[in-house]
Design a protein around this nucleic acid. Structure first.
Lengths: 225, 225
DNA sequence: CGGAGCATTGAAGCGTTTCAATGTAGGTGG
DNA sequence: CCACCTACATTGAAACGCTTCAATGCTCCG
């Protein structure tokens, strides 16, 4: 019972379930579970059966695609309020990627029957999920552009400009190795490209912090060359 | 009026609208248009405002991502009954890719207000759209795997094995240049890899037709090396 | 027959990866 | 408080795989 209330509290602040009242939530919660995972823990493996999906309450999760020769590529990151795994559930296919916790996290698992029932009654939920999937489709398309159509330099510059900035300062949201993987680069390459940008006077780097003194000059990198 | 009936006929055989009755369809059709496009015609351009989406009635459409240096990469193909453009509509962002007709085609355009209204009343429509988006998200993830994690050889072998087969025969669904683009390869590279597979006795190629005498041997290509 | 579009082939070049060595930072235990 | 350890980051040299360019071949259709 305490667990049920807990789930309601965790979910009702997410976009997905913002229009759920206490009753709706109680029904939903019957087919939900909370799940604590420690940093580096696996949430699911590629190939596992997807009979539900997850909402991040606290923490950060990464979706990683394993290649045939042991390489790994990060596809997406998920933070509080975001859900993951639902595309596989909707098409009744096993997970195509691994999900792993980047930090100690608290997740809510929601069973397929529960969400199916909720979709019949809550157009708002459907709309939010449609928007969520659409946004991710959009980013994935851009990622394909990134990975396939842009040079290492362009990828990094585009990524830097896409990060939230405070005045002339930005910050990598995670380790450089992970950033490299997201951009489809070898960590060594990321390092080299960063150095080049520094030498060209376009950025300054201190650990995860990046200073962009002249963002216009940086943007010119994308058109030029 | 003739146009309205026309649209109803075109749409009611698609999965998306299979549970619509005549009244539902009439309401929807008020905010729809049919659109004929000839081979090579542009349906929309990257950057255009997405205030609706398209359903393919007849023909074939490709979504193409333009790179910063004039390269182009095919992201998706759409055939009869499939819809495209809706991810951009749902997130109120301009199209991120170009849509172009691969053959003379007949499309139905559906306005955002109409689909919004329909979603409130038809959970089935929502579910179908969720499934459609999920499936495409799934394929895009696999495409990223293809483009980034696999060699040219692996990409082609994987692709060949994924094509529908009749006994030991398959067929490229479109020109080799387009296949190459979908696989993220230069046409020249596709040509070379095909030749290698032929020399290794794994396939036979005649124009668009491909014979796979021993699919098990071909699958071994994916694990080996 | 001739032309357009697609496919093939070779040679050369380029960007990224790989590998391995070295450097650096943050956290832990003596 | 320092020494150590682990994980991450950097750097260089070499190699690899794909692309590019350009020439040639092929095939279908007017």
């Amino acid at each position: 019972m305490a667990e049920t209330l807990d789930i309601g509290n965790l979910l009702k602040h997410t976009r997905l379930f913002e229009d759920f009242d206490a009753d709706d939530m109680a029904v939903l919660a019957r087919d939900c579970r909370t799940q604590r995972v420690a940093r580096h823990d696996i949430v699911f493996n590629r190939g596992d059966h997807a009979d539900g999906f997850y909402v991040v309450a606290v923490g950060a999760i990464k979706l990683v695609l394993p290649g045939p020769h042991g390489q790994r590529k990060v596809i997406e990151f998920f933070g509080p309020g975001q859900c993951f795994g639902e595309p596989f559930m909707f098409i009744n296919r096993p997970y195509a990627a691994d999900a792993q916790a980047m930090e100690d996290s608290l997740l809510v698992w929601i069973g397929k029957p529960a969400i199916d029932a909720a979709l019949d009654v809550h157009p708002h939920l459907a709309r939010q999920m449609l928007a969520g999937l659409s946004a991710r489709l959009h980013t994935l398309m851009c990622d394909i552009e990134t990975v396939k159509l842009q040079s290492a330099n362009e990828r990094l510059v585009g990524y830097l400009l896409s990060l939230p900035r405070k005045f002339d300062r930005t910050r990598f949201p995670c380790s450089k190795s992970l950033v490299a993987s997201k951009l489809g680069l070898a960590p060594a390459t990321l390092s080299r490209v960063l150095r080049q940008l520094i030498q060209d006077g376009l950025i300054l780097v201190e650990g995860r912090d990046v200073v962009i003194p002249n963002s216009v000059a940086l943007e010119r990198q994308l058109q030029a060359a």
